[in-house]
Nucleic acid binder design. Sequence first.
DNA 1: TTGTACGCGTTATCAC
DNA 2: GTGATAACGCGTACAA
Lengths: 343, 343
Amino acid sequence: MEIKKEVTIYDLAKELNYSPSTISRALNNHKSISKKTIKLVKQTAERVGYRPNNLAAGLRNNKSKTIGILIPHINRPFVSTLISGIEEAARKAGYNVLISQSYDDYKNEVNNAHTLYDSRISGLIVSLAMETTDFAHFQQFVDQGIPIVFVDRVPKVFNSYKVVIDNYSAGYKATKHLIEGGCKRIAHFAGSQHRNVYEERKKGYIDALKEYNLPIEKELIIPFKTLSFEEGKKVTKKLLEMKNPPDGIFSANDTAAVSAIICAKKMGVSIPEELAIIGFNDDPISSIVEPALSTMSHPALKMGKISAKRILDHSLKDLDKLLSEVSVLNTEVIARASTKPIS
Amino acid sequence: MEIKKEVTIYDLAKELNYSPSTISRALNNHKSISKKTIKLVKQTAERVGYRPNNLAAGLRNNKSKTIGILIPHINRPFVSTLISGIEEAARKAGYNVLISQSYDDYKNEVNNAHTLYDSRISGLIVSLAMETTDFAHFQQFVDQGIPIVFVDRVPKVFNSYKVVIDNYSAGYKATKHLIEGGCKRIAHFAGSQHRNVYEERKKGYIDALKEYNLPIEKELIIPFKTLSFEEGKKVTKKLLEMKNPPDGIFSANDTAAVSAIICAKKMGVSIPEELAIIGFNDDPISSIVEPALSTMSHPALKMGKISAKRILDHSLKDLDKLLSEVSVLNTEVIARASTKPIS
DNA sequence: TTGTACGCGTTATCAC
DNA sequence: GTGATAACGCGTACAA
């Protein structure tokens, strides 16, 4: 089997009796080239099956039209939808999208950041691994003026674009929703306090309790490692076996919340009468489980699109002034059957 | 803000009093370089923050160490897990992963194939859009000896690697499972018959009915456009309002199957007694819905890993002989509460 | 074991 | 409006 010779701008130049530079300019819609020439060149390119070589162009410009994504796990509803939004916006602008998963492991995150850098991406979109507290692996991008957008799980201090929801207010709203439904003893499934999202949701929870003069009880604030299904079941069982069990749960994600619903039902605890539950994310399972899970919306697609836009719109001039722009999106309670109607 | 000068192999060469070629070879573990030199070079590279330029290397080799993925939608459980498997295998081998979504639209698929080609990927993994019947947009990869792996939704004729499940046998097993649970009138939610997966599942369904001497009734075989939730609800309602409604449904995916469960329950039809339902994919919702949905396993992660391997292991020599290798994975019935136990 | 020289395909700069 | 030329960073054939 033999490999066909690829068509380059030199071939087009020969074919049309132009110089390679003219071809290049024509293909890039350079203003100094006449409409007629542009049309001719493009038609010929199409006809002979010319395809640009991004590697060559990228090398020349020292940047490829590519956005890199660095997230913990692709196959989670929030993340895959986020990526979908990024991909859509990027593609519209003629950019490609490189993905990598950290599996919530700091070391992987570091390696992937480097590997993505090696492809000379024109921007990086990151959602941090669960325990990342050091950000040196992002410095190389800063040094090269490559914009970084942290999305959802963002660092507190790093100077860069950020796209987040108001997690504090979301935690507050979720807890308030339980309180207004009549809950007096509300447990919280908390994620890693290294991550802003979980830390702030917890703060919102605590402040809502304070606001309504409910006691903050340490034994009701459960630190989770991964907020997984298994973890959720185990914790719920323990909670419900307490002599004074909670009458409400605010879980920092839907997975653990759904596991709580299932566990409670199995133990004969009625939802929402004896135990009201609210989750976070509005994953597909939340509207399928019975009773349907109340939860907080999480605009993944929009966050993805905004993140991509940040990079696409970024220009070198912005480096100093705009680099720390933060987009904060709103979230709302999605009230379903796992919580009591507001009384 | 100024951009730091990047370190190249020339800088390393100067620093170490070697020629650039020695540096290049050392970094690539070339056998003609002594262990000591390799170690020295790599240490220095690390120390001064050298990072290879994939664009330059790719241009030189006329291929970047990158796998391109072309799928309909990222944010579907099967697909995102498939991608996760690809990414994991690719990264282990030092490859990057480019993604693109066709949104089940043929035109997008064509455009994305071209764009991915422009990045000189070393292999392409494709799951076809719903209505793609022409494959000319893949020819350029063949012409350049770039391996293509079709996964799950594959063309019938195109000469290339394929990674699939045995959809016929899966359809057969699913239907048989319903029959053995006592169903006599089994409806089928069928996907686009342009796609092997849906066509074969339907064939398996029909052959199972024949095998058990059950009549094949056209009005029970419902052609779906997208197998969505909404479509599923509408169809189920109609089916159950028939004067002689079905007592079983084999849906070609879980989304439509779950919608059938929900719709049937709402209409007071008991599951599985009056209506047994089996889906396809084992999506997360299938084990959350009540009653839990029986379904067919679909080894997404494994399929992803195999697909990536196909590309990573591919060598030019294979072009003629191996290019049409097909991996067929097995699937099994996952029996849950939405179907009756085998009698 | 190491060095020299060239070219991969493109685009920016300078010239006309 | 167009052409000639150099340069991006790297890998490899050929030399030593």
